[in-house]
Design a binder for these strands. Structure first.
Length: 297
DNA sequence: AACAGACTCAACCGCCTGGGG
DNA sequence: CCCCCAGGCGGTTGAGTCTGT
């Protein structure tokens, strides 16, 4: 296409895959399994580069790929996950069984991006971007006129892999009454009852299995949530105003939230992991609950 | 019917990351 | 610590298709 190839591809087929090529690739992977993509074309007898084979398999040939229209449930989940995660399509795709990152990315760029921009400008649920009414056809509307303060399209975000829950005695929140501080302390304690902290006060799960089972939906890992995105988002002001989040630039990140929110998180969503694991609605309702709680004044 | 513009989405790109030597 | 390589990622492209005139 427009760019020069990253490596020599002389003699290799490019462009759309033929049914014959698909058949060869599918049969090869069925026998030999995935991986070793670089050697695959030569071994399988395909005139394609390894990357192309990998992409074709992952985005089109894989047996668990779900073809067909995105359902309304999936659409809503994509929007909410995008609101949380930004353009991390692989992460979003990981929450939508059978959907690929490429498919979701395309769907967003051609449908949801525009829908969010045009239809939900006033909703706090969605990413708000300045509309560009003068723009002509643009297949990627969210990429047009990127703004410095755009907080969702950011490919190099920092993952937060640890959350620091201070001991209640460590909490010294400004302008808090004794009763309010007790509420916060109770909230922290309730989380610590569900989880455990290591010696440094960092959140950890008792073992790997429980860590995985505690994930939201099928495998929503707390480490996948980029808190820097949350802090850059509209949540930032809300949370700062209410002392829900108190980020420290050079210190462990303090996460403090209300008892109600914590109860919703731990009881409604984490406690019943088995039934929730395959239920999109539970995750959506969790996000609803979380946002509503955070949005309370 | 013919054409042009709009739209879709498979495929490609360069860059980044993690593992191994 | 550095280098190399394979794999993975998000951004981008353009051929094919759709739609309006």
């Amino acid at each position: 296409m427009g760019r020069s190839p990253c490596c020599s591809k002389e003699g290799l087929n490019r462009g759309a895959w033929t049914a014959h090529e698909d058949k060869i690739l599918r049969e090869y992977i069925t026998v030999h399994g995935e991986g070793r993509w670089r050697n695959l074309p030569k071994t399988a007898g395909l005139k394609r580069c390894g990357k192309s084979c990998r992409l074709r398999w992952l985005n089109y040939l894989r047996p668990d790929i779900k073809r067909g229209n995105i359902t309304s449930d999936e659409e809503e989940l994509i929007i909410r996950l995008h609101n949380l995660l930004g353009n991390r399509w692989s992460l979003i795709a990981g929450r939508l069984p059978g959907r690929t990152d490429n498919e979701i990315k395309n769907y967003w760029n051609t449908n949801l991006g525009k829908k969010v921009k045009d239809g939900h400008k006033t909703s706090s649920t969605f990413c708000r971007r300045p509309s560009n009414e003068n723009s002509t056809r643009n297949p990627m509307p969210h990429l047009a006129n990127p703004k410095p303060d755009s907080h969702l399209v950011r490919t190099k975000a920092t993952k937060c892999t640890k959350v620091f829950f201070p001991h209640p005695s460590m909490l010294q929140l400004p302008n808090k009454s004794e009763e309010e501080e007790k509420v916060v302390a109770d909230a922290v304690m309730s989380v610590q009852m569900e989880l455990t902290t290591n010696n440094n006060g960092f959140l950890s799960f008792p073992d790997e299995e429980k860590q995985l089972s505690a994930d939201m939906l099928t495998d929503f890992n707390v480490g996948d949530i980029c808190f820097s995105d949350l802090l850059d988002s509209d949540f930032n002001n809300i949370c700062n105003d209410q002392h829900l989040f108190s980020p420290c630039s050079d210190q462990p990140f303090h996460l403090v939230c209300s008892q109600e929110l914590l109860n919703n998180c731990t009881q409604t969503n984490f406690a019943d992991q088995n039934s929730a694991s395959n239920n999109l609605h539970s995750f959506i309702s969790f996000l609803d609950t979380t946002e509503e709680t955070l949005g309370k004044s």
